[in-house]
């Protein structure tokens, strides 16, 4: 850095801070290439298990619906359970494609911090900004057919099915609202980054 510390007290203090920072004791951790390779493999496995954990709840629900599908004789119920399984399959596929947990991109060093950070924020915003087509809507046909199935099979139970549908609708609305809020928060961070990039003398993140 420039050596104007003789006259500028701010420079003197920040030089001292630089010296303090650079002279702090470190453990000097060494990792051989073999250790790194093993660690890289471990990292990939960690990502795999983390993703699997995300899918497990969907898989458990799918197995349950498959059991109901196999044991019920009413056609409409069987259609409803099949739709649920298909809907859950679609959700898991989208979760996998959108990659909520993923390994680090190898080209990380070719991106500036601004580019990388913004790309990550945009990716996360796109996931949460519109959860209807990939997360909520795929499950709606199953609920609709299940309600119709109840209406046909047991007209007396229609009110209960209606209540259940109402609870599910409220839950869906809450999920949607929470995701919209997260998307707005991420968008604000993206806007701050754009401002920091476009205004040479600005503050920003």
């Amino acid at each position: 850095m420039t050596d104007s510390s003789q006259t500028d007290p701010n420079q003197t203090n920040s030089n001292q801070a630089q010296q303090l920072w650079q002279s702090q004791p470190v453990e000097d951790i060494k990792m051989s290439a073999d250790v790194i390779r093993r660690r890289a493999g471990k990292f990939e496995r960690r990502i795999f298990w983390r993703n699997l954990r995300e899918y497990v709840s969907s898989l458990v629900a799918a197995v349950l619906f498959a059991y109901f599908f196999a044991t019920t004789h009413a056609l409409l119920f069987r259609i409803a359970y099949a739709l649920f399984i298909a809907g859950l399959g679609w959700v898991v596929l989208q979760l996998h494609r959108k990659g909520s947990a993923r390994s680090m991109p190898a080209a990380m060093g070719s991106l500036t911090c601004l580019q990388f950070f913004r790309a990550e924020l945009v990716r996360q915003r796109d996931i949460v900004s519109n959860v209807w087509p990939w997360y909520l809507a795929p499950l709606v046909p199953g609920f609709v057919v299940l309600t119709v199935g109840y209406a046909v099979a047991r007209p007396a139970g229609l009110a209960a099915a209606g209540w259940l549908d109402a609870v599910v609708a409220v839950l869906f609305l809450l999920v949607w609202k929470m995701n919209q809020r997260a998307a707005r928060c991420l968008q604000r961070m993206i806007d701050e980054l754009s401002a920091a990039e476009n205004q040479p003398q600005s503050g920003g993140m």
Partner: peptide
């Protein structure tokens, strides 16, 4: 820190 080292090692594959 280990993640940083792993990412660094991986990244050098594409260092141009």
């Amino acid at each position: 820190l280990q993640d940083i080292h792993v990412a660094l090692w991986r990244s050098f594959e594409g260092f141009d």
